[in-house]
Simulated scan of single mutants.
Amino acid sequence: MHHARSLTALLLTVLTLLAASACASTTPGTGSVPAASEDGAFPVTMTHRFGTTTIEARPQRVVTVGFNDQDFALAVGVEPVGVREFLGYPAPDRPWAPEGVRGKQLPTVGSQDLDLEAIAKLEPDLILGINSYIDDEAYGLLSGIAPTVAQTADYPEGATPWDKQTEQTGQALGRSEQATKIIAETRAAFDAAIAEHPEFEGKRAVFLLGSSAAGFYNLGADDYRTGWLTELGFDVDAKGGEISYEKLDTLDRDVLLGEGIAEADFKRDLVQQLTVVKEGRYVGLGAFDDDFAAALGFNSPLSLPFLLDIAVPRLAAATDGDPATTPAPYLG
């Protein structure tokens, strides 16, 4: 997801900026890292897919270059001084954001491509890129600006579970206690849903993401955006992929979820004749620019409880065995 061309072209400029910033005094951004951080946690060495990164002292100016890393920093009480744009979504307005950042325009450091000049100008002392999809070259350039934490090699690229990402973020920021607390609170939301709806266990679910003239994309367990479903007890296909309308009947399971599905495509005969649709077991979760889609993409301990509030009642209506109780469509 990162283009090496833009990084290489900016290398000389970034090195110049770094030389200049090294001669200047640095004042931490107001409120960027609360004083309650666990100073005793430093120095800390983080292991990741590119090697190790040692963070000598409590970070004061954190830039997040992972697509969803800003949410994880905020979840443990740290406001980044710069963030990566994600989903073309107005992130400061997301309903699960902490009150302190609602409506605030945090400086951005790129979207699909990272802007190394912008990152260097922010004078970070830590760069968080756990969900950044960076390669070796990008990592080398970023770590030349500041200590950089990337994804571990324990999971496929971009597939770090939310709780593990929270743990890593807390460790890097000296906020492990806060990370443990927010993980427990988020797991409690899952536990409450599971206790209230034991019927979810073992149900086979299909999650269709987007539609086109050719068909749909079926999200599998290899995509982190199905993790919340499996945590609730649902079974999903091990691997996702494109599925044509002609083969859609192979996905006629216990419950069908859809996000970003065009109304015209959903009304096609090959879709409407599916048993799961005829029996009212389809859960429509809105468009790509709705809050649910953003909560799904951020997949953070802040956004997941919001996601559950929307999805769980609709999943309950789809799996109660009563065709008369059809899930209400989510309208954003």
Rank of each mutant, 00 (worst) to 15 (best):
C23E: 14
A24D: 08
A24C: 08
A24H: 08
S25T: 10
T26R: 13
T27C: 11
T27K: 13
P28V: 07
G31C: 09
G31A: 10
S32T: 12
S32M: 07
V33H: 03
V33P: 00
V33E: 01
V33L: 10
V33M: 09
V33T: 13
P34D: 14
P34R: 14
A35D: 15
A35E: 12
S37E: 09
S37G: 11
D39S: 11
G40H: 06
A41C: 12
A41E: 08
P43L: 11
P43W: 07
P43A: 10
V44K: 02
T45E: 08
T45V: 09
T45C: 05
T45A: 00
M46Q: 11
H48D: 14
H48T: 10
H48E: 07
R49L: 11
F50N: 04
F50G: 01
T52L: 12
T53S: 00
T54R: 13
E56S: 15
A57K: 15
R58N: 11
R58Q: 12
P59Q: 09
P59K: 05
P59Y: 11
R61I: 01
R61W: 08
V62P: 11
V63D: 05
T64L: 04
V65D: 03
V65I: 10
G66I: 01
F67W: 08
F67H: 09
F67K: 04
N68S: 14
N68K: 07
D69H: 02
D69G: 01
Q70E: 15
D71S: 08
F72I: 00
F72H: 05
